[in-house]
């Protein structure tokens, strides 16, 4: 296989990491909504942790993006 083609495939595969982030966001917001539904008074306090958690989960996807970019540099 051509090295460039392999690199392109690798970049595409790196994007698979986004799936994990998607699962994470789903769990995060699902649980958050559940928690707020149970305890609406705690919403303001929970919101803080939701946004922090979102940033962490999102970062995981972006690590995959960085890997893709690194592969792009090697190609």
């Amino acid at each position: 296989m051509d090295a460039t083609a392999a690199a392109l495939i690798g970049m595409g595969l790196a994007a698979l990491g986004f799936a994990g982030s998607g699962v994470g966001l789903g769990v995060l917001f699902g649980k958050a909504i559940e928690a707020i539904a149970r305890q609406p008074a705690a919403e303001a306090q929970l919101a803080k942790y939701i946004w922090i958690g979102m940033a962490f989960v999102e970062a995981v996807a972006l690590y995959g993006l960085v890997v893709a970019f690194i592969i792009m540099g090697k190609a």
């Binding site: 962490f56 970062a59 972006l62 690590y63 993006l65 960085v66 970019f69």
Partner: peptide
């Protein structure tokens, strides 16, 4: 590593 890459990757990805 995670501290640096998180910020860098967020900014890079958004702007890209």
């Amino acid at each position: 590593v995670s501290l640096a890459v998180r910020l860098f990757a967020n900014m890079t990805a958004g702007h890209t």
